[in-house]
Amino acid sequence: MSRISATLLVSGIIVFGVIVAYELTLMPRTADPLNHAPLTLRDTGAVNAVSAILFDYRALDTLGEATVILMTATVVAFLTPRAKASMLAVRLSSIVLYGVVILLPFITILGIAVMAHGHISPGGGFTGGVIVATSTVFYAVVYSVGGQQSYVIAPAANKLIENTAMTAFIGVGLLGLGLAGSFLANAQTGIPLGTPGELLSAGTIPVLNLISGVKVGVGLGIIVMSLFLE
């Protein structure tokens, strides 16, 4: 691309940026997002409105997003050739080694807690899954010796877990279909929503939170580990 056309393009983009920014300042606020909170509490029993939206109102989107992660993991694992990971051959100091040993259980437990409390406090399956994935990656980085990778979970088991989680997600959805006549239905199935704020409340939301947490955790783990193997 010649310099002139590049300049033209960039200036065009800038001009439009200015127009859009100007238009946005003129715009009235249409809706106050906070108004949703009482509504979600009534409908889903979840205190965390974000989780309510992710795992109930728009659970189909979440199924799709979890699928994207699964797919990316599969693709990355398939495309990267199996070879020694030179990056893992680095010797680490004992401070790091022992520090990680002490931290790892806490990180994992934090991840699980974030998943489990997704419906009553900030966090949820995606956040918790990322934390869990971090802990597995930590482990692999620290304890892989001489480029020989060590796993928390073997790659084959990873795949099994992923696929089982996916089956479970769809299974919960089909349960809703069978009981309430709509896929991924929650309160309509007659499941007790429980007392808002308690751990066992909000119907299927905590279940879906856990499932997607597992999916994300394993999926991200696969992606990161595969990228090491270059």
Partner: peptide, 15 residues
């Protein structure tokens, strides 16, 4: 076959 050029066309088309 230069992807930068193709991207430029796409940006130009959007503009």
């Amino acid at each position: 076959g230069d992807i930068r050029r193709y991207l430029g066309w796409a940006v130009g088309g959007t503009l």
